[in-house]
Amino acid sequence: MTETSTKKLQINHLLGMENVSEEDITLMLDTGMSFREVLERPIKKVPTLNGKTIVNLFFETSTRTRIAFELAERRLSADVVNFAASGSSVSKGETFKDTVQNIEAMKIDMIVVRHSSSGVPKFLTEISNATIINAGDGAHEHPTQALLDMMTLREKFGTLKNLRVCIIGDISHSRVALSNIYGLKTMGAIVSICGPKTMIPKHIEKLGVKVFHHIEDVIPNVDALNVLRIQRERLSANLFPSNEEYNKYFGITKKRLEKSTKPITILHPGPINRDVEISSDVADSEHSLILHQVLNGVAVRMGILFLLGTKTKTN
């Protein structure tokens, strides 16, 4: 803690991984690692953010991200308020801006926001003075997920440089994919994506990722797979014919992984659909870091909250 705590982040808010520097990412990961040690203690609480008030503003349902944030906030001794609303607050007759300004009038320091509309965290920085952390906006970004994924991979491999990572699944509707691509690329990893053509957004290759449509082409050449959740509602949009077909051609199974000469590390942002995008023999295998990701999710969020919460505002 002592060494990293003197360094400052360049960013004032965590809106996404796009344009976040390598130094900032390294600092967030290092700080996350020091908080991991706190989580191993019998008393898992530090007074770092004592007196700070954080609002978890969730306009979209979330279980693990919200719990991970709340645990991280409480373990840093912050005062925590949870605000949950489904869909647009406009439907209740109050605009998003009014909602935010009402909450802000109660003197809060930070807002952790999740919203189904891309761009909401940025919009928040324009209408609020609080420090903003994006907990997922539309299919745009989910930076804390990318940071916990990177923390997990770095811990396993020692470095992200030249690490070969493939993100598999519905890339077009995934904020996890975009944030991971930005973050991993900045850290020097070699990133590819794989999925049915219907789930690959236009011109994604311009981000410097290789695009694959056949899992067999990917497996021999990667160190880690980040397997995305397949959402049932995409079926009605004709993005794929059935869960069975998806599993048969894109599902990560033990048999498929055996095509690789060395073990491949498996990540999944959760919640997993067993035997759709991932089979149980992979999800529960020794090479799966899925539960370790969850632990790192709390640690890295403590690190981010600490770094942003203790930063004196420059603007």
Partner: peptide
């Protein structure tokens, strides 16, 4: 629909 919509997740 294009590179911008892809990177903005819209």
């Amino acid at each position: 629909e294009g590179f911008v919509s892809t990177t903005l997740g819209t």
